[in-house]
Design a protein around this nucleic acid. Structure first.
Lengths: 152, 152
DNA sequence: ATATATGCAAAACTTTTGCATACAA
DNA sequence: TTGTATGCAAAAGTTTTGCATATAT
């Protein structure tokens, strides 16, 4: 299943604050998209989103809503070399996590790896020292075979 | 500059083996693309490739060559949420590395982080244990500000 | 000689945009 | 009320494909 714990009230407030900061109104379409994102445990593509929110929101609006939410830093855009983009909640509104991309069936699942973050934080500092690049955030994706595909 | 050490003879042999295995001939266009990839120290987009190999190879051929080389496992396809794909040599033909993506200027640089790989290898095993996902490879990208953009 | 690759043009797919209308604050 | 969002249709950008010709082995 693709459900998660309900988002905290704080997260909702923070989303409202970011929308307001970006001068964006909380419309029906935006609310649908945000709810879909909050209840998904994996990044969603536009076609996937459309099956969730229904055709009452036309494609062009979906794209415009998504673009706006990325501008407002509510969502982030991800690409997994599939030829189209996926989107998920900004990590500050959710749990920082990484992705398990199944190269058999194309599924994308979230995974949390708390201990790794300590190491990655140290890496961030060594990158700054070695090449002068100031890391703001990182993305770690694992590619391989998911449990379902292994059993099939 | 965007140059690297010359590839080893072994790497060349391995490329030839992979092309042959995929039933692909070593044509002029393919040779140009492979050379461009070998001399680049960052993943290349199709337009970038075109400026390197010149217009003697038309766009559609470039796309077909690239697709073939990905099939033959000579190249891998990457996407950095830019709206188009980038390509680089398969890690078995090069040095395993990660990417530094500058969110100011859009540059993408390679970085090698040998010590991290040990930790990531352990992570791979814990993922298998925890969720049954068999990791084959991973991708780690850092996003932030490159040295040039910091100084500007 | 023969299967594979190329070049051109046309098409497919994802994403963006112009403009008139509808809606949230 | 007023600025922002929506819906539709048209367009733009990236990538793929059909088909006749050319090329590598």
């Amino acid at each position: 299943m693709s459900t998660k714990d309900a988002p905290t009230l704080d997260a909702q407030d923070e989303i409202n604050r970011r929308l307001e900061g970006a001068g964006q109104r909380l419309t029906k379409g935006r609310r649908s998209v945000i709810e879909a994102m909050q209840s998904s445990d994996a990044p969603l593509s536009i076609p996937e989103l459309q099956t969730i929110v229904g055709t009452s929101v036309p494609l062009s609006s979906l794209y415009r809503i998504i673009t706006g939410l990325v501008d407002a830093k509510v969502l982030v855009k991800l690409e997994f070399a599939e030829g189209f983009a996926r989107f998920e909640l900004d990590e500050s509104l959710d749990q920082h996590h990484h992705h398990l991309v199944c190269t058999d069936c194309g599924s994308v699942a979230d995974v949390e790896l708390a201990d790794l973050e300590i190491t990655l934080h140290a890496t961030t500092k060594s990158i700054k020292r070695k090449v002068g690049f100031q890391v703001a955030t990182h993305r770690l994706d694992f590619f391989g075979t998911c449990n379902d595909c292994t059993l099939t």
